[in-house]
Design a binder for these strands. Structure first.
Lengths: 202, 202
DNA sequence: GCGCGCCTTGACCGGTCGGTCAGCTCCTCT
DNA sequence: AGAGGAGCTGACCGACCGGTCAAGGCGCGC
């Protein structure tokens, strides 16, 4: 495993970063319960004991992986949104930024998405849910602003927000990095489809 | 567990149906690996051995659950689509039928969705993927028909199809049956949003 | 009364799980 | 030279996993 996959790019220890990267990939493809500490240690070419030298237990290791997928998402997206002034373009920036974030932390994103249900630790889940809610509320505010600016029609912003997030959140299930379109292009296409609609007005 | 949750509604044996229903709920909430045969047997109030009397192993039990979520989806949706003639209304029927199917087999749907990755048996996955592809191809054909009929603009039908399916497939992550909107109403709202778009034309 | 099948059980199996521990190597600072 | 700490290992632990098996209860036809 020579190529880094996005997790812990600025991790102090080289080994810790290697473990986090390998864990992200394995958790993403096999789920939390389906991944054993032996799987991880063997994919890193190290002993299982060394995992416990760097991390207290499996749960902390998983949490570290999952956090990278969500922890800075909000501030990253907010920064991109703030760079735009036009209400509609702010929504587009929200979508493109989310896609870019997904692209960068793909395996960690998938790992945390797949274990959305069945979280053994409720404290962690509560924390993640709060970040999530803040992120979703932000989108709804952007939609509300665009409605008030007269740029989009008076839709239910909760449902419109869910539609946008569905398009972005389902992407990991079919996105193939070896194919042509980048997440950025995909998000842009979805923005066009959602904004203009399918209907032929001509 | 007195209430049936959709799986195996016409199952010959009462006990088998009970096991399938309980399994669907537990697989849905804890995943395949996270669910033990003891979990299932205890939630049914029976011994673990009895599970193996009715099912050969854990994999067959899971497969039986997962199949109910996908096996008849295509023919069910196709039937609803065939009842409509207008190309746009056929797309709407596709969406409403999918939402209704999800509503009916909710736990089995979630269980099979969550275990999309990490499928130990490749044969089964291949089978499911073929059904899935047929289902998705059908939608793309409906979109193409509507484009050719001049009802929707000349969009990329693959991306338009993915947008529609994303909205439907992500629903299980936020749908709450205790809340007001039914899957039918949700799908109808999504159809309206996707068809007309967010843009204010006035 | 009695044998026969079906549903059902508890005891048990080998294997794997997450996690622990004593101790090894090797580099650094004094 | 030697003390000490970080990185690292293999042997090991109890718990739990999926799965097996011999046998018990029990209704039904003869």
């Amino acid at each position: 495993m020579s190529v880094r996959s996005g997790v812990a790019e600025v991790e102090s220890s080289e080994r810790v970063a290697q473990i986090l990267d390998a864990s992200a990939r394995i958790f993403a493809s096999k789920g939390y319960e389906g991944t054993s500490m032996r799987d991880i240690s063997e994919s890193c070419g190290i002993s299982k004991s060394l995992l416990y030298h760097h991390f207290t237990n499996k749960d902390e290791l998983y949490t570290r992986v999952a956090e990278t997928a969500t922890k800075e998402l909000y501030s990253f997206v907010e920064g991109r949104v703030a760079a735009e002034t036009d209400p509609t373009q702010r929504i587009r920036a929200f979508m493109l930024a989310t896609a870019e974030y997904f692209h960068r932390y793909r395996w960690a994103w998938i790992a945390s998405t797949n274990a959305f249900w069945s979280d053994p630790k409720r404290r962690r889940q509560k924390e993640r849910m709060m970040r999530r809610k803040r992120y979703e509320t932000h989108l709804r505010e952007l939609i509300r602003d665009a409605v008030e600016a007269g740029q989009i029609r008076n839709v239910d912003e909760a449902m419109a927000g869910r539609l946008i997030l569905s398009a972005l959140n389902w992407m990991h299930r079919w996105y193939d990095p070896s194919k042509s379109a980048t997440p950025h292009e995909i998000a842009d296409t979805f923005f066009d489809l959602i904004f203009k609609g399918l209907e032929n007005k001509g």
